[in-house]
């Protein structure tokens, strides 16, 4: 709670928090808030501007943009949270293991991390799509693979700095088992920076998912995704700018919100970065 209060104190943190809440609530409550079914086609009203029935207008098939955008939020935030959570857990496990493992195993883990991060994110994602095929589930798996090394590296680095701390030796001297030391004394002291990384990672995943869907290799239609909405919007941009504006606007709101929130969280958590009043 103290952390939330500290985030609230900075103006950008406040904006980030509000935007993040809007996006998350919008996604969660999409079925309640949406005025139409996201895939409901109304050819007569195709590419119409905002009106009383279609608050933000419609797309080329006459689908309600407000409702599709909300459902797109669901997909975007859902994928981002799932990917980040899974990558975080796997990353921490591998990172801590690397820090404690004998040298050969550590080297293997680090080599895998290096290989994965050697490729540009989007290229690697495209290559994995080619192997796994598109679809929601596969998107989650492949984007997770892309992001595990980031968490793994920082988890390893954090563990290495904490590993030689006298209090871990003191716990051993007290008789604490390896598992207890890991769970109660190592983990709580390494998660801070990792959670910050995770919150900063969410907007990156959102844009990556949108990018893949834009390229047509991500979320498959008719499931609503900001990326595919943008793609369709650009095709018909000569006739209506509303599809691009809505999808782009929501994407911007989400990434900006999470980024500002993440930065504020970092400042709030990391006492070394925290500025004294």
């Amino acid at each position: 709670m103290d952390i939330l209060r500290r985030i609230w104190r900075s103006p950008s943190g406040r904006i980030g928090l509000i935007a993040t809440l809007l996006v998350v609530i919008g996604g969660l409550a999409a079925p309640l808030l949406a005025t139409h079914m996201p895939n409901q086609i109304d050819v007569a009203a195709r590419l119409s501007p905002p009106s009383a029935t279609h608050w933000l207008g419609t797309d080329q098939l006459g689908r309600d943009l407000f409702s599709r955008g909300l459902y797109g939020t669901r997909v975007a935030v859902g994928v981002a949270l799932a990917v980040t959570a899974i990558a975080l857990v796997i990353g921490i496990l591998l990172g801590v293991a690397a820090a404690y493992a004998p040298a050969p195993i550590e080297r293997i883990i680090l080599a895998v991390f290096d290989i994965i991060s050697a490729y540009p994110t989007l290229i690697l994602a495209l290559a994995l799509v080619a192997v796994l095929g598109p679809g929601l589930q596969n998107i989650i798996i492949l984007v997770t693979i892309v992001f595990v090394p980031r968490f793994g590296r920082i988890a390893r680095a954090q563990t290495l700095t904490i590993k030689e701390q006298p209090f871990l030796e003191a716990e051993r001297a007290l008789g604490a088992s390896g598992g207890r030391i890991m769970l109660f004394h190592v983990l709580p002291n390494i998660v801070g920076p990792i959670v910050v990384l995770a919150s900063m990672n969410i907007p990156v995943v959102i844009t990556l998912e949108a990018g893949l869907s834009f390229l047509g290799v991500g979320i498959r239609p008719p499931l609503a995704s900001w990326g595919s909405m943008l793609f369709d919007g650009f095709t018909y941009i000569g006739q209506s700018v509303w599809p691009v504006l809505v999808a782009g606007g929501m994407l911007t709101l989400a990434t900006l919100g999470f980024t500002l929130f993440g930065e504020a969280l970092r400042d709030a958590i990391d006492p070394k970065l925290r500025r004294e009043p």
């Binding site: 701390q165 006298p166 209090f167 030796e169 003191a170 716990e171 001297a173 007290l174 109660f184 004394h185 709580p188 002291n189």
Partner: peptide, 15 residues
């Protein structure tokens, strides 16, 4: 049992 040289750094900081 043992007590260590630097008492502060020998206590787990989040306990």
């Amino acid at each position: 049992q043992m007590i260590f040289q630097d008492p502060l750094s020998s206590l787990s900081p989040r306990f």
